[in-house]
């Protein structure tokens, strides 16, 4: 008798995720829509610099990859948190309309004249918070024994309304249409360190919250009464978790816009690797999220060279089959 099997599995999962992230990061630095080839990048890395290659890698691809890492980790963790707190394997920021609410808030802020990134982050967080509140109220969530599908339906309704609202703004207001179009589908293109700095504060707050929440959330997975019996405060835990989801989704939206299905895929992968305990799946999501996001971003850059696809299109194409697979599974896994 020992804790061996669990921790061996965790170590293995962690190793695999690190490897995946390493490969994805290398691919993200080496491959792009432009002319710089992997071979040139390799030569540059070995010290054979011809000027242009170094610029493309350090000034374009590296910042973009860093943004991808933050967005991937934030969305992966937010998805995991939402799934755990709603005990619903289908919950994730995009499907529940949380990202859409965040986006809508930013669009409204732009309409009203806001253009500073730092402001947009907090607007995005606030929007995400409203989204959480709306969709949970609509599904009348009490945390236990709720129908997973009902929550998703409430999210789909919310998302539909908000998407229509943003489209309306796009049609009516030509002046800000270009600026707004970026927010209607997720993309990493053109984002860099400046934007990262702008989201640092809410990101840090979210990370601290998650660190605090991992233990009570793990207990909450055993049921509200059991968690109380172990000395936790389930209501407080749930509210703080929604706050963390809002912070992280807001950060992701502020950086890259709404990215479809992403928060669904990553926790499913993490659970498949290390089992259901959130104290194991959270660190894994931090690694797997960026790995999957960077991989999707590389695909987005390569598919229609020399042009690019928006990242949100690629994640939707990858994520939709995963959603169907989860729904069609013999039965939904209990969380």
């Amino acid at each position: 008798m020992s804790a061996a099997t669990g921790s061996v599995r965790f170590t293995r999962g962690l190793g695999f995720s690190l490897l995946a992230l390493g490969v994805a990061l290398c691919a993200s630095l080496a491959l792009g829509a432009g002319d710089v080839t992997p071979l040139q990048v390799l030569r540059w890395a070995l010290g054979d610099d011809d000027g242009n290659v170094g610029f493309v890698v350090t000034e374009l691809r590296l910042p973009r990859s860093c943004v991808g890492i933050v967005v991937g980790a934030a969305l992966g963790v937010a998805g995991n948190l939402l799934q755990t707190v709603t005990r619903n394997p289908l919950a994730e920021p995009d499907l529940l309309g949380v990202s859409a609410a965040s986006t809508t808030a930013v669009v409204i802020a732009i309409l009203l004249g806001a253009s500073v990134t730092t402001l947009q982050v907090w607007v995005a967080v606030l929007g995400a918070m409203c989204g959480c509140a709306l969709v949970l109220a609509a599904a009348r969530l009490r945390g236990v024994g709720d129908d997973p599908i009902r929550l998703i339906l409430a999210g789909a309704a919310l998302k539909g309304v908000l998407t229509a609202l943003v489209s309306l703004v796009l049609l009516v207001d030509q002046r800000s249409a270009d600026e707004i179009r970026f927010w209607t589908i997720g993309a990493l293109a053109g984002r860099g360190y400046g934007e990262l700095l702008g989201v640092a504060a809410p990101l840090l707050l979210g990370v601290l919250l998650v660190a605090y929440l991992s233990r009570p959330l793990a207990a909450l997975a055993l049921g509200e009464r059991v968690a109380s019996g172990l000395g936790h405060r389930p209501r407080l835990t749930r509210w703080l978790t929604l706050l963390a989801v809002a912070l992280l989704s807001g950060v992701a939206v502020a950086l890259a816009g709404p990215i479809a299905f992403f928060g669904l895929v990553v926790p499913v992968l993490a659970r498949a690797l290390v089992g259901p305990d959130i104290r194991r799946t959270l660190p894994l999501c931090v690694l797997l999220g960026p790995a999957v996001l960077l991989a999707a971003d590389v695909v987005a850059r390569l598919l229609v060279r020399p042009s690019e696809l928006p990242l949100g299109v690629v994640t939707a194409v990858i994520g939709a089959p995963v959603l169907v697979a989860v729904v069609r599974a013999h039965r939904l896994p209990r969380l």
Partner: peptide, 10 residues
Amino acid sequence: ANAPDGLTVL
């Protein structure tokens, strides 16, 4: 009391 799928005794 209900445990999530896959949780071991330990």
